[in-house]
Simulated scan of single mutants.
Amino acid sequence: MSVTAVPLTLTGSLVELQPLQASHAAALLQAAADGELWNMTFTIIPDARTVDAYIATALRGREAGTMMPFVIVRRDTGQVIGSTRFWKLDMANRKVEIGHTWLSASAQRTGFNTEAKYLLLTHAFDTLDMVRVQFTTDELNAKSRAAILRIGAKQEGIVRHERIMPDGRKRNSVRFSIIDPEWPEVKARLQEKMAR
């Protein structure tokens, strides 16, 4: 059985990462409305016209064994505040990418993102035995780049014209990674951040 076939919930003290379902459409739209995130030009966040296709793509990826999509839920309120996923899952080479991560405007620069990343990285390295976890963000997305560096990933370079954005812009993407020998130090740093 595929590692992605079993619905997986990752639980922390602040957030719970629950398997994305078609029934999450309204909650995702409400989360994205906090900041009107669908207006961002350097990432793709669903709006009312695209949410069903956004979810369908993620669920097809889960069925194919290449993705594990989640909603990010606040444990204190039960409110969906965003989404994230494992994707580009490659069990043969023991590597995965964490991406498609976004949080409601009011949940950004809080402990929610740090804990969500910690849960994903811990599952990737300690349970799935990955040797590499990578992150990719738009060259123009300074906030995302800074957040990825803060968790301890290393910048590897810029992939030019890596994808075409919905507005037709040819996006340059910045690639980051954490590899298995670096994980213990990154894990300790994240635990220290969460304790604060």
Rank of each mutant, 00 (worst) to 15 (best):
K154T: 12
V133C: 05
H24V: 09
I81P: 01
T66V: 10
G152E: 04
E139W: 13
P7F: 04
I178C: 04
R62V: 07
P7K: 05
Q134K: 09
A147Y: 02
L121I: 10
A147N: 04
L128Q: 09
R189V: 13
V73K: 02
R145Q: 09
V71D: 02
S23I: 13
L89N: 01
G35D: 08
L89M: 09
R74Q: 14
L119H: 01
A146K: 06
S83Q: 10
I151W: 09
M194Y: 09
I148G: 01
V80M: 05
V96S: 00
I178M: 03
V186G: 07
R145G: 08
S173H: 07
N93F: 04
A147G: 03
R160T: 01
P184A: 06
R62A: 12
T41G: 15
Y118D: 01
K154L: 09
E185G: 13
F125K: 06
G82M: 06
T122V: 12
P69R: 06
Q155H: 13
T114F: 07
I44S: 10
N172A: 02
M165R: 11
R189N: 15
G152I: 02
G61V: 06
G157H: 04
L121C: 04
A48E: 11
V6T: 15
K95Q: 13
V174S: 03
T136I: 14
L190N: 05
R74T: 13
A58M: 00
A147K: 02
S104F: 07
I158Y: 08
L28H: 08
S173I: 09
A105P: 03
N113P: 05
E115A: 00
P7H: 07
V15Y: 05
S23L: 15
A22S: 11
G65N: 07
P19D: 01
G168I: 02
S173K: 06
M91R: 08
G78M: 01
R60E: 11
T101W: 08
L8A: 14
K193D: 01
K170E: 14
E192D: 14
I55S: 06
K187W: 01
T101F: 11
V186N: 00
L10S: 02
R189Q: 15
I55M: 05
N141E: 06
I151G: 02
H24F: 03
L128T: 08
R171T: 10
G168Q: 02
M68R: 13
A27S: 11
D167L: 08
M194L: 14
L89P: 03
I72T: 12
L28M: 04
E156P: 07
I98V: 09
S13N: 15
D138N: 04
R171Q: 08
N93H: 13
V133P: 04
T127A: 10
F176G: 03
L140C: 12
L20I: 10
A107Q: 05
T101D: 10
L17K: 06
